[in-house]
Nucleic acid binder design. Structure first.
Lengths: 136, 136
DNA sequence: GCTACACCTTCCCATCATTGGAAGGTCAAG
DNA sequence: CTTGACCTTCCAATGATGGGAAGGTGTAGC
């Protein structure tokens, strides 16, 4: 299987497959005589794992750790669970930060007429607030 | 006021002030004879506006648009409100996506013993799921 | 065999926002 | 006059991905 077919089968773009190989997230595949990368079903399986982990919001580095755990049949399930729950906490923290931003902004917008008149307190309040936490 | 003091007063790092100037988000300030950037209270006010907009999750580009509206005393409040509400919707969408990831992952984790035994369905399910949407 | 076309290779660049550092000039205090 | 804190510009890196150029390969049709 060439990289295009592996991309199709795994849902990971050919560009990203090469990138994952470059950063050693996945092992380099076999090569054909002419230098084409050749993938097997196992490789596609791994790529699907990576895609799934990424879609769950794991960073590449975290995905690499999960991949190592996945391949290690003797690992303790506690390791996996701890990582998952830590990530859940991070995701929820980011979600909460976004919701807080949205809430603040909606509050500001609620005090704005939204008509043709220039008066709108949103900008004044953005310009006058002294502190705000950076996140997400 | 030199850039260090402006950074201190506005909460925007000197590095970022120079960067905002480079991309023309903010106008170039006056310069001293020796070439030092010199800022006034108005500049600090603008920088605070930028910081606040960024902390509300507006991109640099959106912040530039808000800044233009802020400076335009004759703008229609509807423009501002529309932009704010559009951004609220985007923030909430991202928050929802993160919460969905967290939910999925917590569900997976709930089926994992989390002890010393190797059995943990989290990884198996990550590896076997066919589709997942990318977002946030 | 030749041509067209789809695919592959490597390499470089861009994004977005921010940080870091190097090399060198300036200012104020001691 | 030295020291140290500040300033200047320039270059590079981050994380994850996309875009594209320049050139090689594989296959189908003629």
């Amino acid at each position: 299987m060439n990289i295009g077919q592996a991309a199709e089968a795994s849902g990971v773009s050919a560009k990203m497959i090469r990138y994952y190989e470059e950063i050693a997230l996945i092992p380099p595949p076999a090569r054909s005589q002419s230098g084409y990368r050749v993938y097997g079903e196992d490789d596609v399986h791994t790529l699907r794992f990576v895609r799934r982990a990424r879609s769950l919001g794991f960073s590449i580095e975290e995905t690499g750790a999960l991949l190592a755990l996945w391949r290690d049949r003797s690992r303790a399930s506690a390791d996996v669970k701890a990582m998952a729950l830590k990530h859940v906490a991070e995701l929820e923290e980011k979600a909460a930060a976004l919701k807080a931003m949205a809430k603040t902004l909606r509050h500001l917008a609620s005090h704005c007429h939204g008509d043709g008149r220039p008066d709108c307190p949103i900008l004044d309040e953005i310009g006058s607030q002294g502190s705000a936490q950076q996140s997400a």
